[in-house]
Amino acid sequence: MESVRRKDVPVVTVLDPKFKYEVAREPGGENIKYCFQCGTCTSGCKVAELDSKYNPRKIIRMVILGMRERVLSGDFIWLCATCYTCHERCPQDVRIPEVMNALKNIAVREGYIHPAFRAQAELIAGHGRLYEVDGFANEKRTDWGLTEIPQGCPEVAEIYGITGLHDLLSGGAGGKV
């Protein structure tokens, strides 16, 4: 029988106990299980101060509890400004920005990527840089007495191929994004 629940109470009945280990296996996620929920991270977080969607302590809590889908599909994990203030202060050395990176890396593999990050990754694959250095730009550089910069860098695309990021982004070879 369904129990009676109030609408505004988030009730979680299924947790994934393996999620915390999964995150701990990612580079940067190693120390996540040390978190004792002191709130030091959130207290100094400028993003959290402005946007209630982002609360690093709560995100870590959700990971430890095993709310896998909710975390990976949430847009909040993309809100970390990687300022490393919390990283410096965390008394348990949880390295929160690196944990966020670990979560984003998993999310990407699961098919969730923030459009802004996808766009950046694709630009870099295409030009070797975030911004294309076109003829106009190089002309300006030469005018200023600065060296010309080659347009594009094919090795970057090769790197995407080697690491599998190319497949991930194009949705081929098991890539879901």
Binding site: M100, N101, V108, I113, F117, G128, C153, T163
Partner: peptide, 22 residues
């Protein structure tokens, strides 16, 4: 060094290995 590319930072949160290799 004209062949330098992006440092890798922008893709670290998307794909750690790619960022490291860049």
């Amino acid at each position: 060094i004209p062949d330098f590319s992006c440092c890798g930072y922008p893709v670290k949160s998307v794909h750690h290995e790619t960022a490291y290799l860049l």
